[in-house]
Simulated assay, not measured.
Amino acid sequence: MVLRLVMFDVDGTLVDSQNDIVDSMTEAFQGLGLKAPKREAILGIVGLSLDRAIAQLAPNARPGQPEALVEGYKAAYMRNRSEKGTEASSPLYPHVRSVLQALHAQDNVLMGVATGKSRRGLDKLLDGHDLRQFFITQQVADDHPSKPHPSMLMAAASETGVEAHQAVMIGDTSYDMEMARAAGMLAIGVSWGYHSREKLTEAHIVLDDIRLLPGLLDQIWGQMA
């Protein structure tokens, strides 16, 4: 039996957290008396580690401000999630749970996540949606360079013992696709997230409906058999 690995991005791929992300980033900037970036700019950095995201959104920040923005964002995000609850603040996209269940039921398929979230943020999300049992490997920003560096995917492959050519990375941003290619994995983009289809130039395939994923993977792996 050949083991396969399916890695997922989180924000914009499994859950729709855009309102909380935008609100929290806006609050962080306004808390320092700074003009908040536009919504499109904020969503454009989703997937990057927080320090790198802040560096892109505030390239002219004064000394100390980037660190304050990071802490302000974290505080606002956790407060918003606590007040609203995970299911309301970061709802699962339609059909995500059923697809995860279908893949999890296959003995030779392992699943994991590679996210720009912190460990604390991912734990809250997985527990809030009762998703922890699906993911055997969980790679977070605390432990790796920011996407698109392939460190997260290389660690996941090492942890699971799955060769890179037997693995796929599924995500909604150009950073996910670049990371997958750098790690030697198949890059599957999704069209329902925060980067437009036009930005997913490094994707081998772009998926419009997550319900098609199990059949697509069967087709891909069948060709490799």
Rank of each mutant, 00 (worst) to 15 (best):
V2R: 15
L3W: 06
V6I: 10
M7L: 15
F8M: 04
V10D: 05
D11S: 05
T13D: 09
T13G: 13
L14T: 01
L14P: 00
L14N: 01
I21L: 15
V22C: 10
D23P: 03
T26G: 01
A28N: 07
G31E: 02
L32H: 00
G33K: 00
K35G: 07
A36S: 09
I42M: 14
G44D: 09
I45L: 09
G47V: 06
G47K: 03
S49G: 15
D51S: 15
A58Y: 04
P59Q: 07
N60R: 12
N60S: 14
P66G: 06
E67H: 14
A68H: 13
Y73R: 13
Y73H: 08
Y77M: 10
R81K: 10
K84V: 00
A88V: 14
A88C: 06
S89A: 14
Y93C: 04
R97Y: 05
L100H: 01
A102Y: 04
L103S: 08
A105D: 14
M111K: 05
G112P: 02
V113S: 01
G116I: 10
R120T: 12
R120Q: 14
L122F: 03
L126G: 07
L126Y: 09
D127P: 00
G128I: 02
H129E: 02
L131P: 00
I136P: 00
Q138P: 01
Q138E: 14
D142A: 06
H144K: 06
P148D: 04
H149T: 02
P150L: 13
S158Y: 11
T160C: 07
V162C: 05
Q166D: 10
M177H: 04
E178G: 03
M185K: 05
L186R: 14
V190Y: 10
V190W: 07
S191P: 07
Y194I: 07
H195C: 02
E202P: 03
E202T: 15
L207Y: 10
D208L: 13
D208M: 11
I210W: 11
L213W: 05
L216G: 03
L217C: 00
D218A: 06
W221Y: 12
G222I: 11
G222S: 12
A225M: 10
A225H: 06
